[in-house]
């Protein structure tokens, strides 16, 4: 299919075109970059991007399935990007989040609801590339026109944290018995929360997790200086206690209400523009560094091994080596008519 067909398709709300466009991004096809170049002006300002993260096993997928159902009952359309890790050894992945999506055998189906578009993607061992991919998918989904876009990812490390940073509202999900404070702090997922959720809150220890969060919010500076929108004194980070299981639902309405309140807050205070500008800045930064790196190493006249040999034999120092590589790349390449797609 041609890029123009897909663009028209997306504008006409054709699911097949949307699905294919995302595949181009996922598979790092050149068409994907061309597509983004063409559709970026049509992104909808009012699209609310929600990030949901937490350690494996906290019930994120089930929870986001309940959030989707709630939004549908409110008449909102939802696009979902569910990210799962791939094996570092084989590159294979089992994308298991869709499994939790409510289906007809359980009552009503989110699988066939025309207001829901669900896409499972793997992190494919990407590092910085993961947030770039997610950002591009969000761009496409925003042009398609979903009211809400949910990004769901395992909060396992820095790259996942970066992914969630593209969201307007970040929800961090915890559960009782999931390790100690040090672990939470190490993963760096606490700093990014706009909303905390203690899921499976019927389990023993739920109250303890809440107390821990409250203490942390009271005693640290998370609400003052360091948050990315710089406004935390105005937004009081809520802690919502939930249960995502159908037979024992709890706190879903409250959670959705808090998520929406956060967006209203961003909009009414004008902070949304700052958040989106930060997202754009980080996207540009990543791209520039990706391109430069790629330029240097895809350049056949640069023999990295040769430089490595020289440095390890103490012939030259590593700073000089790096300078030489960049110098050589810059002088030998046509920097003026750079075609990014060759380097991504």
């Amino acid at each position: 299919m041609m890029v123009q067909d897909i663009i028209d398709g997306i504008k006409n709300k054709d699911i097949k075109s949307l699905a294919r466009a995302i595949s181009w991004i996922e598979k790092e096809r050149e068409e994907g970059i061309e597509l983004i170049r063409n559709i970026y002006p049509y992104q909808k300002e009012e699209t609310h991007i929600i990030g949901i993260t937490g350690f494996a096993g906290v019930g994120k997928s089930t929870l986001s399935s309940r959030i989707i159902e709630k939004y549908r009952s409110m008449g909102k359309t939802v696009g979902v990007v569910a990210i799962d890790p791939s094996s570092p050894f084989t590159g294979g992945a089992l994308l298991g989040d869709r499994l939790r999506l409510g289906s007809l055998s359980l009552g009503s189906s989110m699988w066939t609801d025309p207001g829901v578009f669900y896409r499972s993607v793997s992190n494919r061992g990407r590092m910085g590339g993961l947030s770039r991919m997610t950002g591009d998918i969000i761009t496409i989904m925003s042009v398609f026109g979903f009211d809400k876009i949910i990004i769901e990812t395992v909060g396992a490390g820095q790259s996942e944290v970066d992914v969630i940073k593209v969201a307007d509202t970040s929800v961090v999900v915890l559960m009782p018995g999931m390790g100690d404070r040090v672990q939470f702090a190490k993963a760096g997922i606490l700093e990014i929360a706009d909303i905390f959720v203690v899921n499976k809150s019927d389990l023993v220890g739920a109250e303890r997790v809440r107390q821990f969060l409250e203490e942390m919010l009271n005693f640290t500076d998370y609400r003052k200086g360091e948050r990315r929108d710089g406004t935390s004194e105005e937004w009081k980070i809520p802690i919502v206690m939930t249960i995502g299981e159908y037979n024992n639902l709890k706190g879903i309405d409250e959670l959705v209400q808090k998520i929406d309140e956060h967006f209203d807050y961003l909009v009414s205070t004008g902070r949304l523009k700052e958040v989106r500008k930060k997202r754009a800045k980080s996207e540009i930064e990543t791209l520039v560094s990706d391109i430069v790196v790629s330029l240097c190493y895809k350049n056949h006249s640069v023999d990295l091994d040769e430089f490595a040999k020289k440095v390890s034999n103490k012939k030259i120092d590593q700073y000089t080596a790096a300078e030489k590589i960049i110098e050589k790349t810059m002088t030998e390449n046509d920097i003026v008519n750079l075609n990014t797609s060759h380097y991504l």
């Binding site: 089992l94 298991g96 499994l99 409510g102 359980l106 009552g107 299981e245 159908y246 037979n247 024992n248």
Partner: peptide
């Protein structure tokens, strides 16, 4: 009365 069992298993 009792609800439904809705816990799918991956592997």
């Amino acid at each position: 009365v009792y609800g439904i069992w809705a816990k799918p298993t991956l592997l």
